[in-house]
Design a protein around this nucleic acid. Structure first.
Lengths: 261, 261
DNA sequence: ACCTGAACACCGTTCAAGT
DNA sequence: ACCTGAACACCGTTCAAGT
């Protein structure tokens, strides 16, 4: 239920690949991965399945197109021009005071530029939790598609600007991309995670609390580290945590490669 | 076709959760994610769906159990008892002094221990490509399950041994875990990747060649970096590449935290 | 307690037919 | 060229019924 927003312009616009992709994003955002079905799509677009299949080969291709569209928009725009009122702002968190601070102004150092790209992807995944899985699939299964090169390029250019020797470009860029996508993805699904056998989590704080508590109850013999770390899970600010990890990888790159530590 | 291996002990053993998990792993290994269906499972186990549902709540729980079983076996065993010397040792980055070297002998430094755990997961994903996606899902959607703590613990203990200050345990361990899972996952699907609109790839060398060629044909204006890096993709050794990236993250950790660089 | 198997609701995809 | 919509094969899941 509740999946019946807009249904206005039935035949105002003709069907097109773009309109299909747009509708698919809306369905994914509203109901997650399982919300995107050809049934729901035909209903929303007021057509039959055949019409959609004329513009798109199959569901996999549609998911690819959807992912590419969101990534392209993200990397073109940079991080949050923060789309106005999407929910109750951000949890704010104790986070850093200034940090990359600069909103409008483009980053000045390569490190800052990488942070900006990373934050852009982080926020895109935050807004579209389904994106994490799709990106992982694109990266591994379809590296010749356009989304992998796009992400690689936007981060790799800055790696080059870091004066990393060319022989290490691929390794350094890969490490950054894997961290960014992994960490952002982990953060993602939490927000909208549905019910599970453990209970139902409405908001993120409660979710983290559940995780933290579960970890604290692990066997002290087998899980001393995880137990010790459980408390850090509870209070942490996601964005902060994400950027700290990124700085770790950046530090590794400069430590191994930079002329000057 | 060809999915009809063993069908011997129809009623030799009673149905059990373990037998179901075992059969599920076999199906996943043989035919990938889409190969695991309750139909195929009932056929292989010579029962009806109801019997399976008596031991397992639903497909998600089954996938969770399957993932946990493989991870538990992997982390208990350590990396490849296996497959002889694959490739020329390590690139010997400038990093640590002695490097691991040791095969049989359990790792001596925390870095080596982390490399061992990482390699174990790398190889598990290599053997079970479907594991990459499942692990990502477990990490993000189900961190209170047992697989997340298990991975976290095995890597985190070594982070602690690295004399990282406690306030950074979570960040450092997260960065490592994300890198390991992301990089191993990227490597994974390639091996068995089926056909796509670009063609059909039987073996890995051909796959990499396709990717490399596709990247070389990108617009020089928009993708200078990716084009420049395309060649490195072709020749590289996966394991090598994987360990280099890991060393990058390790270098970042020691650079930021270690009493001694 | 454990298993059977028919049945249900739903899914991606096809295709002859229309305009 | 673009769209319709019935139909197909298949899926996860349920449940009355058996032992």
């Amino acid at each position: 239920m509740a999946t019946r927003t807009r249904r206005s312009q039935r035949r105002t616009e003709a069907l097109s690949r773009e309109r299909i992709v747009e509708a698919a994003v809306e369905l994914l955002d509203a109901a997650g991965e399982s919300g995107l079905t050809f049934r729901a799509l035909t209903e929303r677009l007021a057509t039959g399945p055949g019409a959609i299949y004329w513009h798109v080969a199959n569901k996999d291709e549609l998911l690819g197109a959807v992912t590419e569209a969101v990534v392209a928009a993200t990397l073109a725009a940079g991080p949050a021009t923060s789309t106005a009122p999407s929910g109750p702002a951000r949890p704010a968190g104790p986070a850093g005071p200034s940090r990359s601070a600069g909103r409008g102004a483009s980053a000045d150092s390569p490190q800052d530029a990488i942070r900006a790209v990373a934050l852009g992807l982080f926020e895109a995944i935050e807004d579209h939790p389904w994106l994490a899985t799709q990106l992982a699939l694109q990266l591994s299964r379809n590296p010749w598609g356009s989304v992998t090169p796009r992400i690689f390029e936007s981060i790799g250019r800055q790696v080059r600007a870091l004066d990393v020797p060319e022989s290490s470009w691929f390794t350094a860029t890969s490490a950054l991309v894997h961290y960014v996508l992994g960490a952002a993805g982990q953060n993602a699904a939490n927000g909208a995670s549905a019910d599970t056998d453990t209970g139902t989590h409405t908001d993120r704080a409660e979710f983290l609390d559940t995780v933290s508590s579960a970890w604290e109850e692990l066997d002290p013999e087998d899980y001393p580290f995880t137990r010790a770390v459980a408390d850090q899970v509870r209070g942490h600010d996601d964005r902060e945590q994400f950027l700290s990890g990124l700085d770790l990888v950046l530090a590794g790159i400069t430590a191994l490669h930079s002329p000057r530590g």
